[in-house]
Design a binder for these strands. Structure first.
Ligand SMILES: Nc1ccn([C@H]2C[C@H](O)[C@@H](COP(=O)(O)OP(=O)(O)OP(=O)(O)O)O2)c(=O)n1
Ligand SMILES: [Mg+2]
Length: 654
DNA sequence: GCGGATCAC
DNA sequence: TATGGTGATCCGC
């Protein structure tokens, strides 16, 4: 019954290398697949090798702050519990549980597919001798490691010199993003045969709803996935693991169950699902990272089953942890809506670079110019402009800071202008010693969409033949079920989870004050907002549970829960799959170009290339020019910049 | 709107 | 000797 767990109450004394710090140093991917011999020994080595470095000191600082945060939460808990009938509180929570349970939908077969050691597997394709050898991809930092290397404790995100200490024979390879991107596209197009509306969630993973496919082909979900995985291996020589469950969160967790080249299907039964979640580490829940794992551990929660045991406390600390989000995890309930990501869902574009610490302003500005050049290239190439520029810099102590500036109009994407804005933001901070500098533009405007709509009044179309709800309804997506909070509005609009949650905030920005653009703003897409509902898709990027599980000192107010996800898309470098990112439909064999209407016999890459051609730089330039006519290069730019009120003239790079 | 934090891949 | 890059969300101001 209502019983507090004060055991974990005492924050671990942060003595030299507390258990917490050791785990922190081990990195965010420690608990991933690839069983290591002795994690404790590995952690010891990592700490030993890291000790004394700036990086290590910074991790120690963050660990101390986290410890203080835990102390605050425990005090908060103890105060909240005073004079409260915990049994009563539990009864209230139990009502909520009943409501959530009523929303459980087991009618859809959702699959999460995830390539095995992706970058590493692609490297093996190009050099078969690597198979069975311990190797890692990534220079300064490991992007991923072969399963052989994982046995030694090598993990994503780990410094390569640390990895070599753990595995002296480790082979370290440079990255080949173009190859990963190419293989990603191929694999995704195979998955799309099973669900044309699949949601790409990163360069190597995605979600599919195979309910329809299984019906039409009279095949079981398991056989379907077994066949799909076999075909991927036959056609690409890459192995993929998969999870089959009633919703995205469960499917993702399941895809990790039999990780290297395996699959796992969860029983579609409430009791079986709850049993599955009961002993599952809370850390396995998408959206719960290292920090929230520790915060929850401090109040006696390590597994999803503990969520129920501590439900009274969680109810009292709702603001800090997000009760509903955790209860859904406990129940194994989440969204089962699978929809492709949309290009317009992108919310930012940026570039950043790490270098040997610099203090000389001239040299720092030189680095800033480099990132500005890169950013200009990407923005022009992909057709974006925006209204806010954020400068990011990391001190040689690894402390990260950001400085932003917003404009009334769409900014110029010329590198000189981006640089000038960044310089303006950095100058007042200056005497600094930096190891990284970056620029990011947000509040984006999609110039390709503009070019497209100008080219003709095209509408959005991507849907699969039958798609369910037409995007015409005003709100609510109505997929198979869930994703939007049906009825019961109220609750806090919070929870949104990584796209797994069921309810969501209904914000829809779309502000688009349209200063500069009047035309296409979006007059032709009433449904835009609908598609971008925060809910659904998980993505490669995603937010954090922020409020959800975390909290900050005193006050707090909002909702909780992990955020919703965002569009698929891999990094610039990282491969990527402009597939789902482009506003033009799905891919398959015979595709119709949304611009010229010609039927093309090609795959996604081919279609994308063709579309780019159709939209042509000309069309984009026109759009960009139109925007720039009113864009503001920024005063700084005017100064540092050459002649004329830099208006158009954008184009320049090739 | 800004800055810091957290998370994912 | 040495610890990446891209993108998203959320909270408190
Ligand atoms: N911190 C990280 C994590 C991942 N990746 C890249 C390299 C991975 O190959 C790819 C996919 O990430 P996964 O988390 O799916 O890891 P892997 O596919 O490598 O291994 P697994 O078999 O565990 O899925 O993303 C990266 O660059 N940096
Ligand atoms: Mg993978």
């Amino acid at each position: 019954m209502a019983e507090l767990d004060r055991s974990g109450s005492k924050p671990p004394s942060s003595t030299p290398d507390s258990d917490s710090l050791l785990r922190r140093l081990a990195g965010p991917s420690v608990n991933k697949a690839g069983l290591a011999k002795d994690q404790t020994e590995i952690n010891r080595i990592i700490a030993e090798v890291s000790k004394g470095s700036k990086f290590y000191e910074n991790e120690k600082r963050k660990d101390r702050e986290l410890t203080l945060r835990i102390e605050r939460i425990l005090r908060l808990r103890d105060e909240a519990v005073q004079g409260v009938d915990l049994n009563k509180v539990e009864q209230g929570v139990d009502k909520l549980i009943a409501q959530l349970e009523a929303k459980r939908d087991l009618s859809q077969a959702i699959v999460h597919v995830d390539m095995d050691a992706f970058f590493a597997s692609v490297e093996v394709l190009d050099n078969p001798e690597l198979a069975s050898k311990p190797f890692a991809v990534g220079q300064g930092v490991v992007s991923t490691a072969s399963y052989e290397a994982r046995k030694f404790g090598v993990r994503s995100g780990m410094a390569t010199f640390v990895a070599k200490r753990l595995c002296p024979e480790l082979i370290v390879l440079p990255s080949h993003f173009d190859r990963y991107s190419e293989m990603s596209s191929r694999v995704m197009s195979i998955f799309r045969r099973y669900d044309p509306t699949m949601c790409v969630a990163g360069c190597d993973e995605g979600y599919l709803n195979i309910t329809r496919y299984c019906d039409e082909h009279s095949i079981s979900p398991e056989d379907c996935v077994t066949q799909m995985r076999r075909i991927v291996q036959e056609e690409t020589s890459l192995t993929v693991s998969a999870g089959i469950a009633p919703n995205k969160m469960l499917a993702k967790i399941c895809s990790d169950k039999n990780k290297p080249n395996g699959q796992f299907k969860l029983e579609f039964e409430p009791e079986a699902i709850k049993a599955f979640m009961h002993d599952l580490s809370i850390r396995k829940v998408p959206g719960v990272g290292r920090v929230n794992e520790r915060l929850l551990e401090s109040i006696g929660i390590k597994t999803c089953g503990d969520i129920f045991r501590q439900r009274a406390v969680l109810s009292l600390l709702d603001k800090q942890f997000g009760l509903e989000f955790l209860l859904q995890a406990y129940l194994g309930i989440a969204s089962n809506v699978v929809q492709p990501g949309q290009r317009e869902e992108r919310k930012s574009i940026g570039a950043e670079r790490t270098f040997n610490a610099l203090s000389d302003p001239a040299k720092i500005y030189a680095k800033l110019e480099e990132v500005a050049t890169e950013l200009e290239h990407d923005m022009v190439e992909e057709g974006w402009t925006g209204k806010t520029v954020t400068l990011k810099y990391k001190l040689n102590t690894f402390e990260v800071h950001t400085r932003a500036k917003s404009f009334d109009r769409w900014i110029s994407t010329r590198k000189e202008d981006l640089f000038a804005i960044g310089q303006e933001l950095l100058k007042p901070e200056l005497p600094l010693t930096l190891r990284l500098i970056g620029l990011r533009v947000t509040k984006l405007k999609d110039l390709k969409a503009e070019a497209e709509s100008k080219a003709r009044g095209i509408k959005r179309f991507f849907g699969s033949a039958s798609s369910t709800g037409s995007p015409q309804k005003k709100r609510r997506i109505e997929g198979p079920q869930a994703d939007q909070d049906d009825e019961d509005h109220d609750h806090s609009p919070r929870l949104s989870q990584d796209g797994f949650a069921i309810s969501m905030p209904g914000y829809d920005e779309d502000i688009e004050t349209d200063l500069a653009d009047a035309s296409a703003s979006h007059g032709a897409e009433p449904e835009t907002s609908l598609y971008r509902h925060p809910t659904a898709k998980p993505k490669s990027s995603s937010g954090t549970p922020s409020h959800s599980l975390l909290s900050t000192p005193s006050s707090s107010k909002g909702p909780s829960l992990p955020p919703s996800t965002s569009p698929p898309r891999m990094g610039k470098h990282s491969p990527l799959v402009l597939n789902d990112s482009n506003p033009f439909g799905t891919s398959s064999s015979a595709l119709e170009c949304p611009i010229c209407s010609r039927m093309l016999e090609t795959d996604n890459d081919g279609l994308n290339a063709h579309i780019d051609f159709c939209l042509s730089k000309q069309a984009i330039k026109e759009a960009q020019a139109a925007s720039l006519q009113t864009a503001v290069p920024s005063k700084a730019a005017a100064n540092a910049e050459e002649r004329g009120a830099g208006l158009l003239k954008y184009k320049k790079k090739g």
